[in-house]
Design a binder for these strands. Structure first.
Length: 487
RNA sequence: GCGGCAUUAGUCCAGCCUGGCAGGACGUCAGCUUCCCAAGCUGAAGGUCGCGGGUUCGAAUCCCGCAUGCCGCACCA
């Protein structure tokens, strides 16, 4: 299925929609989750908690979205998250000053030059706009962070451009109070904000978006001595190397042959791909793409993007970055706190491996990989534990006490399961409506129900039905929610 | 941010060229029908024609600006 079908489904069925859409001054890059979308996202995040956070014994926190300026001095975002841009005074074309200069003058420029030096270079080489030969204006820094003013004095602070900074600055207290030892993963789900120049395609590139980030703190000396590595050593990792070669190899081979930096990285890539297999994303259409030095973030020693093939091309869902001791080293320096951790006898600045997941994009991919049109039927073949609604409860016809009986069953289930009652239209129409939002089960009350207290349960994927007792509905639904019976 | 195209009911779209009552299909709702897969019949609701300005007796329609969306470029932690 393509983007257009998913977008239409989203608008019609309440997955997501543009923010502030009744006003004409609304801005690009902001989208709402509707009722069905919220339910899907909650289920997705809970699967993330179950299959990554709890599986690995991680510690989850929830930090603030607004953080002080010094956090981003330390993180490097104030300096490096800003691009030097220059605008043509004639035609308004905007280009990256550093790239434009190095392309036309030759050689590469050091990062983070003051803007005056770019101005001087443009003047020295008499560079004109490539589009219209017009003069360039002054070079300025465009920072991708949203600045906010705090209190009556409008003190500088910023909306976080990634959730992980809270983890770094909270880490010292967490190690003390939660009695943690290396290696340990910290997890956080929440909003991040980036002032993208060109937001695109609804959930794919947003200015306000959800991340689920995991930051694994470890001592680099023991990164190849990981007991739990045995659990996943046979998991296959599809890796697209920076040199272009592709290989599907086991986690064990990847670590031994140094295709990934160490066992610890191999382990987390493996549990990540096992997580995505459980989301229903087609695991034959995923890869880890190794980034070369130019494409990596400024802090990363190694980086693997987890990508999924979609109708829009390969889409990056997760950035896996080996951040080394950059973060804790920088925060130690700028905050003037000792951020070393005692690992046995040794004091270390922890190294960090990061699994930075884009939730909105992941939700989109789950939808695209699950949605199917078969003849006249449109069906979202989503895993039951991700389904926004678990079961529709229907009276076969709206008379002779059937609605009352169905309502009674609905009431008995509603606190435990996301169930939906509907008596409007033919029974077929009600089944098909639920198919479109991926509801795995239709429970129908008919005339036999009134005699023997049984109902039919209808399966979304096969459309087949069987009769079960009313008392068995609860266990029937529970059994469908089991993850570990899934392949 | 640049260029091209687009924006009309919940959704898809016609109407625009050639200015003159706001339309269709699907969906939704109500009633009838209905013993299991978008059936049928009857009826109804639903509109800031993206926003602002201009031209005109009169603008969904023509002109200008802006916003948003899509595609391409550029950008992309």
């Amino acid at each position: 299925m393509g983007y257009d079908e998913i977008y239409k489904l989203a608008l019609e069925r309440g997955f997501f929609s543009p923010s502030c859409e009744i006003y004409s001054d609304f801005q690009a890059g902001f989208w709402e989750y509707g009722p069905i979308g919220v339910s899907l996202r909650n289920n997705y995040v809970n699967l993330w908690r179950r299959e990554l956070v709890r599986r690995d014994g991680m510690t989850e926190i929830d930090g603030t979205q607004i953080m002080s300026k010094n956090v981003f001095v330390a993180s490097g975002h104030l300096g490096s998250f800003a691009d030097p841009i220059v605008v043509c005074t004639q035609c308004g074309t905007t280009v990256r000053a550093d790239r434009m200069i190095s392309e036309r003058v030759g050689g590469s420029l050091p990062e983070g030059l003051p803007t005056e030096e770019y101005d001087a270079l443009i003047a020295k080489h008499d560079l004109k706009c490539t589009n219209c030969k017009g003069d360039y204006g002054k070079v300025r820094k465009f920072n991708m962070m949203f600045r906010v003013g705090i209190g009556p004095k409008d003190d500088d602070a910023y909306l976080r451009p990634e959730t992980c900074q809270s983890i770094f600055v909270d880490a010292p207290r967490l190690f003390k109070t939660m009695r943690l030892k290396l290696p340990i993963g910290f997890a956080q789900f929440g909003k991040s904000f980036r002032n993208e120049i060109a937001p695109r395609q609804s959930l794919i590139r947003l200015r306000e978006f959800y991340q689920a980030e995991i930051e694994v703190f470890f001592n680099p000396k023991t990164a190849n001595n990981l007991a739990k590595f045995q659990e996943i050593k046979h998991v296959k990792l599809p890796i697209q190397k920076a040199d272009g070669n592709f290989a599907e190899i086991t986690a064990e081979e990847a670590a031994n042959r140094k295709i990934v930096p160490n066992q610890l990285v191999a382990y987390y890539l493996a549990i990540l791909i096992e997580f995505y297999a459980k989301t229903g994303i087609d695991i034959k259409k995923v890869r880890f793409r190794e980034l070369n030095a130019e494409d990596r973030a400024f802090y990363a020693l190694a980086a693997f993007d987890f990508e999924v093939q979609t109708s829009l091309g390969w889409m990056e869902l997760v950035a896996c970055n080996y951040r080394s001791d950059y973060d804790m080293g920088r925060h130690a320096k700028i905050s003037n706190h000792d951020l070393t951790i005692l690992d046995g006898e040794e004091k270390v600045i922890p190294h960090i491996f990061e699994i930075s997941m884009g939730i909105d994009r992941s939700i989109y991919c789950v939808l695209e990989h699950s949605y199917a049109k078969e003849n006249e039927r449109e069906v979202l073949r989503i895993k039951p534990y991700l389904a926004p609604i678990m079961a529709g409860i229907f009276p076969l016809v709206s008379k002779e006490g059937l609605p009352e009986k169905a309502q009674q069953i609905f009431d008995s289930l509603k606190k435990e399961f996301a169930v939906f009652y509907d008596e409007s239209g033919s029974i077929g129409r009600r089944y098909r409506r639920q198919d479109e939002i991926g509801t795995p089960v239709g429970v129908t009350v008919d005339f036999d129900t009134m005699k023997d207290n049984t109902v039919t349960v209808r399966d979304r994927d096969s459309m087949s039905q069987k009769r079960i007792k009313v008392e068995e509905i609860r266990s029937y639904l529970s059994s469908l929610l089991q993850i570990y019976s899934e392949s």
